[in-house]
Amino acid sequence: MKNIIILLVLSVISIGQGMAQKFGYTDMEYITSKMPEYQQAQTEMKKFSEKWAKEIQDKFAEVSRMQRAYMAEEVLLTDDLKRKRQAEIKEKELEAREYNSKIFGMEGLLFQKKKELMKPVMEKVQRAVSKICMQKRLDFMFDKSSDVGMIYSNPKHDYSDYIMEELGIDAQPAKGIAKEKTVKDESTVAPKESSPKQKSTTNKLK
């Protein structure tokens, strides 16, 4: 299905521009599978995932232990002690569920750790994509293994400003803020190797 969508997009581009634009595709899943950096990041991710999963398992095991102990002693407890023990169990279970959500929930610690570990790999791949697109004079590059689809586009084909103008949206303040932030960042971060101006979408590596 993804390949069909990409082909349709490419067909529209080709027809609309009279074949004036050049495009290509790649397979990021295959490329990253051959990258030692990617494999190392995957290994690190597995370690963190297993470590956190064990911690959560231990927390729920403690809840189960407390529940079994309560059931075994329930007939001997006063009503006040029953309520106290039940509250303790409930609090412990809530703590375990919250920790599980903190780690494996949407944008939780595991998600953040994945972004941290994958960022260098993704940046390296994106630099390679941009370089090849410029060398081969490609206007668009698609990834057939990703739902993202487009991973590079020549900025000269960006018509966002025209659309915003049509909608009556003033883009100047936002751009001014972005420029100010860039200058501020450059004053505190060591300069990096310059790269061509581009607009690209980096696919989410699996």
Rank of each mutant, 00 (worst) to 15 (best):
M1G: 09
N3V: 13
N3D: 12
I4T: 12
I6R: 03
L8I: 13
L8Y: 08
V9L: 13
V9C: 10
V9K: 07
I13T: 04
I15H: 07
Q17E: 07
Q17D: 05
A20R: 13
K22W: 01
T26P: 02
D27I: 07
D27F: 14
M28Q: 08
E29F: 08
E29H: 10
Y30F: 12
T32A: 13
S33W: 02
S33Q: 14
K34Q: 15
K34R: 10
M35S: 11
M35D: 12
P36Y: 08
E37D: 14
Q40T: 14
Q40I: 06
T43H: 10
M45K: 00
E50R: 03
K51Y: 10
K54P: 00
E55I: 09
E55K: 09
I56N: 13
Q57E: 15
K59M: 15
F60R: 06
A61S: 13
E62Q: 12
E62H: 11
E62W: 01
V63L: 05
S64E: 15
R65D: 07
Q67H: 01
R68N: 13
A72I: 05
V75N: 04
L76T: 15
D79W: 02
L81D: 15
L81H: 11
R83H: 09
R83S: 12
R85S: 08
Q86G: 02
A87N: 11
E88M: 09
I89E: 03
I89C: 07
K90C: 01
E91L: 12
K92D: 04
E93K: 15
E93N: 10
L94M: 13
R97Q: 15
E98C: 01
E98Y: 06
Y99I: 03
M106A: 11
E107G: 01
L110D: 01
F111H: 09
Q112W: 00
K114L: 00
E116P: 02
E116W: 00
M118A: 00
K119N: 15
V121M: 03
V121I: 09
K124A: 14
Q126C: 04
R127F: 06
V129W: 08
S130H: 04
S130P: 00
K131N: 04
I132D: 01
I132G: 01
M134F: 07
K136P: 00
R137W: 01
M141A: 14
S146N: 08
V148M: 08
Y152S: 05
S153W: 03
S153C: 10
S153L: 11
P155L: 04
K156I: 15
S160M: 11
M164A: 11
M164W: 06
M164D: 07
G168P: 11
Q172A: 15
P173W: 02
K175E: 10
G176T: 06
I177G: 05
I177P: 02
A178F: 10
K179G: 02
E180Y: 04
D185Q: 12
E186W: 10
E186C: 07
S187F: 05
S187C: 06
T188N: 10
T188K: 15
T188H: 12
P191W: 11
P191H: 10
K192C: 04
K192I: 11
K192T: 12
S194H: 12
Q198G: 08
T201V: 11
K204F: 04
L205Y: 01
